[in-house]
Design a protein around this nucleic acid. Sequence first.
DNA 1: ACTATATTGAAAATGGTTTCCATTATCAAT
DNA 2: ATTGATAATGGAAACCATTTTCAATATAGT
Lengths: 152, 152
Amino acid sequence: MSGYPLRQQRLYDFGLKLTNPRKVIINLLKNTDKHLSAEEIYLDAIKTNPSIGLTTVYRTLDLFFQIGMVQKYDFGDDRARYELTDNPFKNQHHHHLVCVKCRTIVDYTDFVNEELELMNKTEKILSEKYQYKIFHHTIHFYGVCTHCRPVQ
Amino acid sequence: MSGYPLRQQRLYDFGLKLTNPRKVIINLLKNTDKHLSAEEIYLDAIKTNPSIGLTTVYRTLDLFFQIGMVQKYDFGDDRARYELTDNPFKNQHHHHLVCVKCRTIVDYTDFVNEELELMNKTEKILSEKYQYKIFHHTIHFYGVCTHCRPVQ
DNA sequence: ACTATATTGAAAATGGTTTCCATTATCAAT
DNA sequence: ATTGATAATGGAAACCATTTTCAATATAGT
């Protein structure tokens, strides 16, 4: 029993200090179901603490990514997007469906168990065959949503 | 019967002109099994025609991507990488296994039929459920290769 | 509170990609 | 083959997400 919330404990476990910018960014990620970019996170963060700099946001996100606390994605719009690894707002395991026009991202969970099973099997074989230590995979579907395709 | 090679025909079909930089870039992509970046393509292209500019390489690759002739990927190393959609050097359908240290990319085809079947099924359901017109998907595995992990 | 040390913020640098624009090449019509 | 309308090109400069630099500040164990 440390008395610390889970995510703050995680910082301690890695010998990291619990600073205000880190708290602010954790809280903000905890309360969104979106895939925010560094700039979006920065603009949200300064509402809570106007002195937070964009540099710190980048550094903090990278740090969280390094310790596995956030996932970092590229959905093809020239900026990284982040989501908390264990987000109470989301289903634990999901993959992504991206509208290449409006950049809306749907977290889908359909067939996710089946997918996961196949991914695990594939991961095992690939690890052995190519001698890779695999730690992560992504599945992205790209398309155009109804809203961006009004006719038909 | 047009008399043109397939890929050149494709340019005509889209009302595009067959210029030297485009020919050079097509040929070079046809003869590699790698996932080249724009700069790598540029450095290769100027061996054939030194007057080709980097700008044109970017424009040409984007054009080819728009008409579906090349695939454009982000493997997390801060630059886009390209491969010909139908490359005689490669298995038609494959997915990617990326070493996050040395950035080697393995095209794997293991379980690709099983994967494809599941992807098609998933794609169908997602299309209907979320009303997306899906045209593309990616599966990336990320890990570290033996070479980058010498001990054990 | 004090101190060693990690962290921060602002400004400048970086680097892949895009834009601008004057020049040049392509190709359909002659 | 030549012409002319138009698309494509190349170089320089701009763009913009991200990183680096460095002096100032905050954190956490004592």
